[in-house]
Amino acid sequence: MTESTIKGPGDPGFSRRDFLRGSGAVAAATALQTHAAAANQEGQAAGPAIVRGETTITLQVNGESKKVTVEPRTTLLEVLRTQLDLTGAKPISHDGSSGGSTVMIDGKPMSASTLLAVALVGKKIQTVESLGGPKPDAVVKAFVEHDALQCGFCTPGFVMAVRAFLDKHPQATEAEIRGGLNGNICRCGTYANIIQAAIAVVKGGK
């Protein structure tokens, strides 16, 4: 359920005097004026909604609208895996340090394990499954061709990372590839093959 029950002191605006008194080395009056003005125009409404307990939201996942039920603490990873049967993103580290749960949010690679589902309404969520299908993405094909996977548990996260990296750097050199894909961990040691797979995608122009 969604509630809007915020109580507060209203919008008192900002005290210009306080600002000046505390101004530091780079404080500039001109800067301050524009900011205070902007702040004063904001937020005259009743106050923001507060979400407590279970709530139903709609997420845009791989181009489709999906209704899911979440609590504020539910992570995107949990929703994908337990409600949408999208288990490509993996729970490897709880804090994103493995890259195992990499998905793209509005085209950018992020860790689904550290994103709250409730915060992603209206965002375009893309998971590794969108790169599969009857005509797999060039990165998926290159991973297979270069045997850039062993146990495969880190692989979906790595595939997403390579896809995101090459989307941004389609002409990446080998040195850039080696420098740019360090957010993911593989335990089986497939890095050498992943480098070759990424190089192949660059050469193939996809």
């Binding site: 915020i6 109580k7 507060g8 002191p9 209203g10 919008d11 008192p12 605006g13 702040a39 904001e42 937020g43 409404a45 106050g47 923001p48 909604a49 507060i50 979400v51 407590r52 504020p72 804090d95 994103g96 860790s111 550290t114 994103l115 709250l116 409730v118 915060a119």
Partner: peptide, 29 residues
């Protein structure tokens, strides 16, 4: 409980409620 303010003053309202402990979420990393 979770809230996503759209203005600075809304954010301050939410943070200023001393009856609850609060944390600020941005990227979440």
């Amino acid at each position: 409980e979770y809230a996503a303010p759209t203005t600075e003053s809304e954010a301050l309202q939410l943070l200023g409620d001393s009856s609850v402990s609060t944390e600020i979420l941005a990227g979440g990393t």
